[in-house]
Design a protein around this nucleic acid. Structure first.
Lengths: 160, 160
DNA sequence: AAGATTGTTTTGAATTAATCAAAACAACTG
DNA sequence: CAGTTGTTTTGATTAATTCAAAACAATCTT
C-alpha cells in the first residue's frame, strides 16, 4: 500500500486551490522557470502533501494530459534541489514530497494503513539534533520517523 | 555509492570470525533451521555490520559458491522476521542489515562517503521516542538518522 | 517584440533493488 | 532412517527511479 497523506481524510469541501500567481511566484523566487507542469505539481502538492511521484503524476495528468511521469520526476528533483519542497523516504515506501520546508519537523507513519502526518519534534526544541556522541561528524540534519498505529487503525483492530 | 560500514576502516588485524557453533545457536534459538547460507550470512554480518544484501552476497559467495543472491534475500528476510537482525533503510540507499538488535540505537550517515556508524540516541534516554503530539497514534518505534560529514570527509574537504 | 540562449519536457530505454513462484533439495522430527 | 516441513535454486517479474537525446518553451537581450 502506498503511503498517503492525512490532510484530507474527510474529503468533501476543499479549500480553494492555491492561487496560480502565488504558486508562480514561489517557483520564480526559487530561481526556476515557471512552466505548466511545475505549476500543476506544486498545486497538487499543496492540495495533498505527502504524495509520491506517481500520485502527483495522476493529479497533474488530469489537468494537463500530455505530461509525462518523467517530467514529474524532473519537476520534483528541481524543486527539491531548490529547497522548494522536501523529499522524505520512509522505509518501504516510494519517496514522498511536501511543501513544508525550513522547519525541522518530522513524521509519524501508520504501520497498518500507511497514513502520514507531520509532527513537531520531541520534547523541547531541536531535541534529536544532538546524538549522544557524534563520533566526529559535523551533523547537519536529524531525521525522525515515528512508527505506530493511527487512531483509526487502533479502533479497527479492536472492532474489525 | 553504497553505504558501507565503519567498523573496519583500519582493516589489517581482524578479530577471529565468530565461532560457527555460536552462530548456529543463535539461528536455532530464533526458531530457524541452521543452514550453510544462513551461517555464512550471519558470519558476514558479524564481520561487517551495516552491509547491504549485495555486499553480503559477495562475502558469502566466496566461501560458498553456488549461493544465490535470492537466497541471501531470503535469509535476511527470515532473520529480520525472527528478530535476529535489524534492517535499516536510509534514504537513497539499499537496505542495510546489522546484528545489533533490541536496543533502540540509531545511525549517523556521512553525506559524502556514505559511511554508517551506530549512535546511541540523543540527550538522556529514549529522547526522541515521544513526539510533541502523537496525534492519537500508538507509537511503537522511533527511528532517527543523523546526516552530516564524517571526520575524514571534513578533513578531505579542507585539504583535498 | 523578435531572436538568442538556456533550461525544461518528451520520448524511449535502461537500471537498481527487491520480490514472486515453482521445482529441487536439505534440515530437523519421531 | 524415512517423512515432513522449511529452505534454496532457478528463472522471471515488478516497482521506483534514472539516463540520454531530441523537441520545445520560458526568459533574457537588444
Amino acid at each position: 500500500m502506498p503511503l498517503t497523506d492525512a490532510s484530507h481524510d474527510d474529503a468533501g469541501l476543499r479549500l480553494a486551490a492555491a492561487d496560480a500567481a502565488a504558486l508562480a511566484d514561489s517557483i520564480r523566487s526559487a530561481g526556476l522557470k515557471v512552466t505548466a507542469p511545475r505549476l500543476a505539481v506544486l498545486r497538487a502538492l499543496t492540495d495533498k502533501p505527502h504524495s509520491n511521484a506517481d500520485a502527483l503524476f495522476g493529479a497533474v495528468y488530469s489537468d494537463l494530459p500530455g505530461t509525462s511521469l518523467q517530467a514529474v520526476y524532473g519537476v520534483l528533483a528541481s524543486f527539491t534541489a531548490a529547497g522548494l519542497v522536501r523529499k522524505i523516504e520512509p522505509a518501504g515506501s516510494p519517496a514522498l514530497f511536501e511543501r513544508r520546508v525550513g522547519d525541522n519537523h518530522h513524521h509519524i507513519v501508520c504501520t497498518r494503513c500507511s497514513v502520514v502526518h507531520d509532527v513537531d519534534c520531541a520534547v523541547g526544541h531541536s531535541p534529536c539534533l544532538t546524538p549522544a556522541d557524534a563520533l566526529g561528524f559535523d551533523v547537519r540534519a536529524a531525521e525522525v520517523i515515528y512508527w505506530g498505529l493511527c487512531a483509526r487503525c487502533q479502533a479497527d483492530t479492536l472492532a474489525p
